[in-house]
Write a protein that binds this DNA or RNA. Structure first.
Lengths: 153, 153
DNA sequence: GCCGCCGTACTCGGATAGCACTTGTCCGAGTTACTATGG
DNA sequence: CCATAGTAACTCGGACAAGTGCTATCCGAGTACGGCGGC
């Protein structure tokens, strides 16, 4: 899995606390990340409708919606793409008694088992929102949002 | 995820039905796969203790244990490696108030959420064995094992 | 006829290239804020 | 003093290289079988 997933997840939490547009270079400096590369990743979130971007001075990235409506699955999918990790190539169709008219991706028992596992993974991620993460952190460190806002000044 | 996972899963099912060593070239021919590359993947299963290999004429690969004791997770792990897909780099340690002595991989809320999701995925795969897959296929196509044994004759 | 030995052919196993994707970087298009000027 | 047009600087956005891991292949080490010679 792309390393950018970790970056943008933490960045979404920070943006949730800040509440106004912040330029990518500053967001990257917070974790000492490659600025241009983080920018590239954030572009993907804009295309997915998770962030909004404004150009020019005083510009930057901000959350496009309420943190409570942004699931972790959405963020991961925006970076990794919607394709499942296990993609059945349907090799059963190449077996000696394979049938080209059958959709082996749908009927294959192995394909079904792998899909079921990935579904469990996605449901787990879809059950947590950015707001949930923020709440968990605040419960452990109440001063974190204010301290972060301060730093981004 | 590596495409070889699909190959070896189907191959394990076939080996479960055949019950004796089969050379990799023949196993590959069944699905029209690159023989040498499938061989390489099967080597990984041997190292993981899932298959046994015998050299020379009448040699080949065979299941090392009962199909009911081989989980899908074992097979996937043998190919993909034991490392989780999401590996937390602990970028929190690089934040302005980061602490080098803290294990952020363990405490980070985001890292925890991602681990939890992957755990659900692994439990789903660990709950199904190769024998279960065989049983599902046989229930749908009772003649499949015999037909497969015949082909490998 | 039977046993032991040798050669041969066949298989796995690891070492070796080729390719795709992730990672990382750069410069241009667009936009905003500032400034100077005129009313 | 205020409005306005021009200018300049700053930001995102997409196009452009480099590194890493998957994909694919080949040849060598080891082994079992079959044939052959000797007892």
């Amino acid at each position: 899995m792309s390393e950018g997933v970790e970056w943008v997840l933490h960045t979404c939490v920070n943006l949730s606390w800040i509440g106004r547009p912040v330029r990518s270079a500053r967001l990257a400096a917070f974790y000492d990340l490659p600025p241009a590369y983080l920018n590239k990743q954030l572009q993907a979130l804009v295309r997915a409708g998770i962030l909004t971007s404004v150009s020019g001075p005083k510009g930057g990235f901000a959350l496009a919606r309420e943190p409570a409506s942004i699931t972790l699955l959405e963020v991961v999918t925006a970076i990794e793409g919607a394709d499942p990790a296990f993609r059945c190539a349907g090799i059963l169709g190449d077996s000696p008694w394979g049938d080209t008219s059958t959709d082996y991706v749908a009927t294959c028992v192995i394909s079904t088992a792998m899909r079921k596992a990935e579904l469990a993974w996605r449901e787990e991620l879809a059950g947590q929102t950015v707001a949930d993460v923020c709440a968990s952190v605040e419960r452990r460190a109440p001063g974190e949002p204010e301290r972060t806002r301060r730093w981004f000044g």
